[in-house]
Design a binder for these strands. Structure first.
Lengths: 408, 408
DNA sequence: ATTTAGTTGGTTGGAGCGACATACTATTGT
DNA sequence: ACAATAGTATGTCGCTCCAACCAACTAAAT
């Protein structure tokens, strides 16, 4: 593990005028996504790009059917009383659909997703991963038939999210202990099933969710450096730095769930002891609830615990509060590690945010530096559906609509 | 801590032809730094930039006295036997000097550093931070007089590194518990003392060290994603992602030293319990050694422990081995967090690397994922002098010779 | 020794692209 | 009429890229 071995080859790339174009195109597209409706003039003000540059790029985006124009009629409060009315720009819906698949040990979600992250139609099927290739192919088929039954235009791409280690470059699931997958060529299976779909992307669920939050989330704060914390059967995190997902050298960045929280603690499914997710995942919460309550009852999911807590069941409330405290402990470590401005928590647990948050924030505060000026905002997800489903859509959209990578 | 509060304002910036030039300039300058001597043709092959582009940028670098040309005379093994001889390019020494200051609780190092990271001359003074401003000013004066006494050209800039929370944008030390500083305007003090120096940069010691390793380190592997682990009185880490330092939202990324290693464990100087640095810092090692050996002896520094270990003293060896194991535990968390390709360890402890490494690597292996494909390389620093001193030089060089920042 | 071919390094001039500044038209309200 | 704002058209500038060219060197043939 020490001397021998190599790091990933480092591809040095210079920039040229096409680089500039793709950067500015991405900047403008992002601004439209986040601030729509917005006029050309508004974009120019915001980005400090020249009006003519904005016009030029906007016209290509319009010709590519990515955005639409809508002249403003009346006067809106924010604007001056004088002058020509702007032409508002917004994402053009209906013509650029992607398919999204979110695999999960119990239910797999399929959806047709529009360019703004809105769900056109969706389907939920019970996960049945034996054999894996057949199930993946079946999901692809259902997705395509979903298009047909609603009379929709063909997919621009299909995105997939899975809990576990994923290699996005190869659209390949390296290891998903949740699903029992090892070295499954998800991308290839879908490509064979849907040869007419031009783009396929696969990503880890938490990383994809983080990206969905960045693109489709509704927040009144700017998301630039943040961490998406996905609490479910396990705990996954997606780290976003300067609006880019942190992949790490082996695509394993953000495996905070298997960070040791308590040395020599509870045995985790990964084989080690004391992992964070052995204390704060939904399974841990359920186990704590069942343990405290003694046997009896048929509580098996986090939803059951939340329902019980809402009924006023003391052990259920205690279990959730305890989970909050464990979450706070782990989040404290995340803050020390990457100092994000925001932590966004996703998962069914968010339905009991009022019960979880106090313990979480209290523990977090207790783990602050003594004279700390740290500020960090902790929020539940703003996404209405399962974040990893929207994440699957977002990562393939990024692939289609222009990803920019600049190496210095 | 939840809803109220704001994240840092996000400055959207487009790109233009100057952006392209600065990117390519940085790419070429980096290639020369890392691969010197190298010819124009070699750079073009490596970067895939056009020969004429390379020529153009190289000529500006030459005219700015940053690099020099030296025609190759004989035939070198690697090259073909035919063809015109190349003109080798390399960093031009002697004309672009920077001053570097590395503050430390016991000894502060001052140095005149050349463009390639070589130390022209240096001085070591006992740290005496009461009052802080006077000491900083004295350091600046000594640095300048160092120039004069050696008949050297004026500084292009002065860089400073300090353990603690630093705001590089304001060249401001927010909090350094080691030195007992709080809100010290280091940059301003030096600027007033040396008004003729055009650039001043201040950075956290571990982050600066990481940067020094990136620019001046000699490794046979490519450093792109790595973490510099600075073990001293405390533990600091500098995270580098895609060759950029990860600063975090409040410049506090990489505070792994205050990550909780053992819940409810040893009290740390930061006020919390069980921090990693309470177990693996030099102070912790010394304390463990003194505790195991009983009183008597005057061991107060890590050097004493290492000397004792070299004499064959069993408690000293045990203390160092134990430190290695604790280091491994923390490094395991770093890997889970950001998945770096390489971890580089700096500090006096490296002198006992043979004693520390086995426990470190063993613990690290024990904390791997079960079916893991993770590869991570752990190495002691390749820098001959205190990394944070070279880091101070590197960060101000980055400021002078062109930092590129592209926001998408 | 001289010539010629072959190979590689580096430079030059022009084409093309893209952002930018400026001047222009269009549209609105007073 | 005038002021203010939105959007477009045109010319300039900076940069990379391409292709041709010059420069320097080796090897082999004459």
């Amino acid at each position: 593990m020490t001397h021998p071995g190599k790091t990933k080859p480092y591809r040095i790339t210079g920039a040229n005028s096409r680089t500039v174009r793709s950067i500015n195109r991405a900047v403008i597209f992002n601004v439209i996504r986040e601030r729509q409706p917005i006029s050309r003039a508004g974009i120019a003000r915001l980005t400090r790009l020249n009006k003519s540059t904005v016009s030029s790029i906007v016209s290509t985006l319009v010709s590519e059917d990515l955005i639409f124009e809508k002249p403003v009629q009346g006067r809106t409060p924010g604007r001056s009383a004088f002058g020509r009315n702007p032409i508002d720009l917004g994402l053009k819906k209906g013509t650029n659909l992607v398919g999204a698949i979110s695999f999960d040990p119990t239910t797999t979600l399929l959806a047709v997703v529009d360019i703004d992250g809105s769900i056109v139609c969706s389907e939920e099927i019970a996960t049945d991963v034996r054999p894996d290739a057949a199930f993946i192919a079946r999901c692809a088929d259902r997705l395509v038939s979903l298009l047909g039954s609603h009379g929709l235009p063909p997919f621009r791409g299909i995105g997939v999210s899975v809990a576990g280690a994923v290699d996005p470059a190869r659209a390949h699931v390296v290891l998903s202990s949740n699903l029992g997958w090892e070295d499954v060529d998800v991308g290839e299976i879908i490509r064979q099933r849907c040869p007419e779909v031009p783009a396929i992307a696969v990503e880890n669920d938490a990383k994809a969710s983080a990206f969905a939050e960045l693109w489709f989330g509704k927040h009144d704060i700017a998301l630039v450096n943040f961490v998406f914390l996905s609490v479910g059967r396990g705990i996954g995190t997606g780290i976003v730095i300067d609006r880019r997902i942190l992949t790490g050298e082996s695509n394993l960045a953000g495996e905070f769930g298997h960070m040791v929280l308590i040395e020599g603690g509870i045995r985790c499914g990964c084989g080690n002891d004391g992992c964070w997710e052995a204390y704060a995942s939904d399974r841990a919460t359920v186990a704590r609830f069942v343990g405290a309550r003694g046997e009896g009852g048929d509580c098996t999911t986090i939803d059951d615990v939340i329902v019980a807590a809402r009924r006023g069941d003391a052990p259920a409330i205690a279990a959730l509060e305890e989970t909050g405290r464990y979450l706070g402990m782990g989040i404290a470590s995340i803050r020390k590690a990457v100092d994000p401005g925001v932590i966004i928590v996703g998962g069914r647990l968010c339905a009991a945010w009022d019960l979880v948050a106090p313990g979480l924030l209290g523990t977090l505060r207790a783990h602050m530096f003594a004279g700390a000026r740290e500020t960090m905002i902790v929020l539940p997800t703003s996404l209405a559906v399962r974040p990893s489903l929207l994440g699957a859509a977002a990562i393939v959209q990024r692939k289609i609509f222009g990803d920019v990578r600049v190496t210095v």
